[in-house]
């Protein structure tokens, strides 16, 4: 299962990088969202999958899935949501001010 997930994560990253290199601002924002999915899955996969019960002690199992990566990913999900939210609003403001969402046209400013 880890092998399969590694390949899937590879695919997510490929698509993400491809989207990052597009000219459209919205695709770039979508790419960050996908990137965070990829990273979260990567963290979970690297610690081994389905190796025991969910990390809740009341299940009273012999083995539990590693809780530490889960705690990390939980933090990461929230933070990456913050990032996505800011990027979305930024792209909205950028469009309002510059009247374009094409990264090629947004290149360079008067201050440069």
């Amino acid at each position: 299962m880890e092998l399969l997930m590694s390949i899937v994560i590879g695919i997510i990253f490929s698509v993400t990088i491809y989207l990052f290199m597009s000219k459209n601002l919205l695709r770039v924002v979508a790419a960050t969202l996908l990137l965070s999915h990829g990273v979260h899955l990567l963290l979970i996969t690297m610690s081994g999958l389905q190796r025991g019960a969910a990390p809740i002690l009341s299940f009273d199992a012999d083995a539990y899935t590693d809780p530490l990566p889960q705690a990390l990913v939980l933090t990461a999900i929230v933070i990456s949501f913050g990032v996505t939210a800011i990027l979305l609003v930024m792209s909205y403001r950028t469009y309002k001010v510059h009247k374009t969402d094409d990264l090629e046209e947004l290149r360079g400013s008067a201050d440069e």
């Binding site: 590694s6 994560i9 590879g10 990253f13 491809y18 290199m21 990829g38 990567l42 996969t45 690297m46």
Partner: peptide, 14 residues
Amino acid sequence: ISVGFGLMITLGSL
């Protein structure tokens, strides 16, 4: 580039 990057991530993860 994107496929290469994905491949590296897969191999790295493994």
